[in-house]
Amino acid sequence: MSIVELRQYTLRPGARETLIELFEREFVTGQQAVGITVGGRFRDLDDPNRFVWLRAFPDMARRRRSLEAFYGGPVWQEHRDAANATMTDSDDVLLLRGPGFTPGPGAAEVLATVCHPPGATAFDVYAARHLGPGHALHRTEHAENDFPRLPVRTGEDVRVWFGPAQPPPWPTRILRLEPVTA
């Protein structure tokens, strides 16, 4: 299992395609060069001003080193102003433990479920009945964020998975996502 960030950016009206083009051209390879695995990148089908993406790290120590290298490195330094100009909020980030997720070729729509279950036992019963290995189940990583320059949401316990499933009986948000293709 990897350390995974589920990042949801709120963008200025009309700026999503600008960010996606910059992201695909510069930030995917720029992050990969410092050891970050860039996973799925998505347009939120229910919010034209939202960009959702995932990135993964082998562990928390390598997360910190990779983020230091990327955000202190030449790719981010050259393009950060252009990227930041598209965003109104980049702090909606869940720090998770799981397999990561990249949609299969030709996927037109992906469902991502963010669930706040009341406890591990109740969720495990639900998951055994409704989720399989293809759902790429993730759980909150409760380790302290050791790269505070990039905030993460804290104080909540979530489960996140990808693909259709019967909705759980707990507070849940389902994201309808369109994969970005390079």
Rank of each mutant, 00 (worst) to 15 (best):
S2K: 08
V4A: 01
L6G: 02
T10C: 04
R12Q: 09
E17F: 07
L19P: 01
I20H: 00
E21I: 06
E24P: 05
E26M: 07
Q32T: 14
A33C: 11
A33H: 14
V34E: 01
G39A: 11
D47H: 12
P48F: 07
N49T: 06
N49A: 09
F51Q: 04
L54P: 08
F57K: 02
D59W: 05
M60Q: 14
A69E: 06
F70M: 02
F70S: 02
Y71I: 00
G72N: 04
E78I: 01
E78M: 04
R80M: 13
R80F: 10
D81I: 12
D81H: 14
D89A: 09
D91H: 14
D92T: 09
L94M: 12
L94S: 06
T102Q: 08
A107R: 13
A107V: 15
A107I: 10
A108F: 06
L111R: 05
T113Y: 04
P117E: 02
A120K: 14
T121L: 13
F123S: 01
Y126M: 07
G132P: 00
H135A: 09
H138R: 07
R139N: 08
R139M: 09
T140E: 02
E141F: 03
E141Y: 03
H142T: 07
N145Q: 12
N145I: 10
F147A: 04
P148R: 15
R149I: 13
L150H: 12
R153Q: 15
D157I: 00
V158D: 00
W161Q: 05
G163S: 08
P164G: 12
I174E: 09
L175G: 03
L177C: 08
L177Y: 07
P179W: 07
